[in-house]
Design a protein around this nucleic acid. Structure first.
Lengths: 221, 221, 221, 221
DNA sequence: TATGAATGAGTGTTCATTCAT
DNA sequence: TATGAATGAACACTCATTCAT
């Protein structure tokens, strides 16, 4: 029988991983939304529990009632946005009949899906990036570091390699190209926020054209 | 036609020209170096005056003797790195005989110069980006925000527009392309730091090829 | 001559006699048991309502439903253990035919009874001592302070004085001796808990011998 | 080159274990004194950094400037008192010409020394005991637990064993006796504080007589 | 020039307690 | 009876900044 002085469960009598009630889920969602807003407005360093609580119109304790930690709040925020994105990506992927598409079309679909989603939810994405760039553990290491990032490159590299084998793509380093694609995509959310009037459709087709040219084998178009 | 890499550096914002002694300047340089190291190791949030002082082997007060503020220290750090970069760029530009070159060659030179410099000084660059992404004034606004960033895009957009006029480049949005170039360049420093073994020469030529393809008019190669 | 072990227990401070149902009483008992366990495991400072509730497998509110206060919970815990001890002491006292015994035998019986009980219930006793040593009112004064402790010494002092009158005991200060006896007894619970393998029988007879020698008049043995 | 985000050194530029200045030492001493006072007045649970600071007439930050931690403050307090006690004990031991003394005389000297010191510094001792009884690490384990206590019993057990070999002491368990002696000694500080008028000389000779009787072989007096 | 000392605002976190359901 | 939700005071601790020396 062991006791720990750290980490609490507080209410939620039985240890059972707390089947969250509807209102509980709603509050968590609201707090995550507020966290996103604060992250966008004030950045990672300006995102404090008090400010999140204040924006939600509740006391500071409420935040820590629903999330054990500040870390848990931030990580839940990232996970939430991530999950929503995956959900969207799956549907969009299906709509694009992506399975049967050629590598260039897949790349197109990938960029389109990502940029569309960002254009529709720039704050969520910017907030997530803000956290992943800054959130560190007590040892000073980035929590969402390279180990977290690598799997993000995998699908892109897959597309590139397939395209090189099929003869659609020229010979380039798939990793460098994947990293470049992600950089361009990730920057988009901040540009959306900085210039709200930005024509995301035009921007997207520019980016699509950019990487289409960058990857295609000469004369295959 | 002349391209400038923008931003003059002005170390002496107040009129009183350069009262700093040599040792004074040395100390400031040392403290800026330590600031860079701490920024790279612990990120913006982990960069405190004590840690900078500790790293420099001096007391905390020393830092505030040479820099009125934490803000001033950070801003001086950014400016310093910026100045060094400008210095380098000027020399490199000259070596490339850049003034007489064609737009594609200019783009090549631009990328080469930037990536070479980053490969040689990844920590400085990463530290600067860390600050420019996170440093905010008391109102929560980014100090090195878009007003600071826009002039960075100018020379690139100049090259692109010239190339489109001269018929070397296809028709694309120079701003989108400039932003994309900068994103890819800026990300490079973090990759250098994350994977010290990275072959920067190979990486650079990949990026050069990427944007050469992305910009060229079809069949002009 | 009759000795009382002092302190009546009165579970119902308010006049309204025993409105508690059976299940109510059971819950209180269970919560008190959990309180004891937490006190032993984590000490007074680590004993929080949440942890007591968690241990009992109920929500935090339940504890405050059955005990108006944290203070009341702790005080009820002390009282409960105290009452159980009194109950035991009465029976044991009777078994020892204590009423007709000589002062040395009474002292022996007192020590034996106390140490036997502690050996059988070290956690309860340690928990009680933990509370009585630490529990303070809002002004910072110990709730179970000297006013609470003095009556504990009374029966021992009674035995000593009787023994001195009867010529069994040498001339010593009954209060100092009583305090010393209590210190040795009270420490026993913690030793039991710290060294579970401890031979309590041997320990007890050592303590009995110690105080027999310490009190006897020379040559009366 | 490693950075840690925990534990600070703040000022004190070079790592060198901070040769404490005179004023630094004075402040630390003062803060330790205040800690002792608060511990005695309000107990372990009531001893907060603010209250210590308040009593010292300084701001809360000062305490943490001189002691990295609350834990360090408490541990320094214990160590300080401990060191002073050792210092005193050495001198007193020498005065008693203890080296050539018989075991009963040694026991006498031991008790006399301890109780004299406590009578002269009851608050320090009570504070120390308060900490050692309550101070736990983050896992809930007592910091000054049995591992810390055992060496305290060693000298006493040594005296007892010597006395049993020399024929001065009867046959008893040296450990049980040592524990009993310590319990009686340790309780003394609280009694001094609870009853300031207490005649410590008389009390001491009572305790000395108690353990003299408790240990002596029959008829050797 | 540099240091040690001190301050005060702010941060994350804990916890007893209240209350509607 | 019991729970979940919320509050607010208190706590340990961090950090930029000030100031006398």
């Amino acid at each position: 029988m062991r006791y720990r002085l750290t980490m609490r469960s507080d209410n939620h009598p039985d240890g059972q991983a707390s089947v969250r009630t509807f209102t509980e889920e709603a509050r968590r969602g609201q707090l995550i939304d507020c966290t996103i807003e604060v992250l966008v407005a004030l950045g990672y360093g300006g995102t404090t529990l008090s400010r999140v609580a204040e924006r939600a119109g509740v006391s500071k304790g409420v935040v820590l009632y629903h999330f054990t930690n500040k870390a848990e709040l931030l990580e839940a925020t990232v996970r939430e946005v991530y999950d929503r994105g995956i959900e969207y990506a799956k549907r969009a992927w299906f709509d694009h009949h992506a399975e049967s598409a050629s590598p260039p079309d897949l790349l197109h679909a990938y960029l389109q899906t990502n940029l569309d989603y960002i254009a529709a939810h720039p704050a969520e994405i910017a907030a997530t990036i803000e956290v992943s760039r800054n959130h560190r553990d007590s040892a000073g290491a980035l929590v969402f570091g390279s180990a977290f990032e690598e799997p993000i490159y995998a699908p892109l590299e897959g597309i590139f390699r397939a395209g090189q084998e099929s003869g659609h793509f020229r010979d380039f380093d798939p990793h460098v190209m994947a990293v470049s694609v992600r950089r361009v995509i990730d920057g988009f959310s901040f540009q959306m926020l900085a210039a709200p009037g930005l024509d995301s459709r035009a921007y997207t087709s520019e980016v699509v054209a950019l990487f289409d040219r960058a990857t295609r084998k000469d004369g295959t178009r």
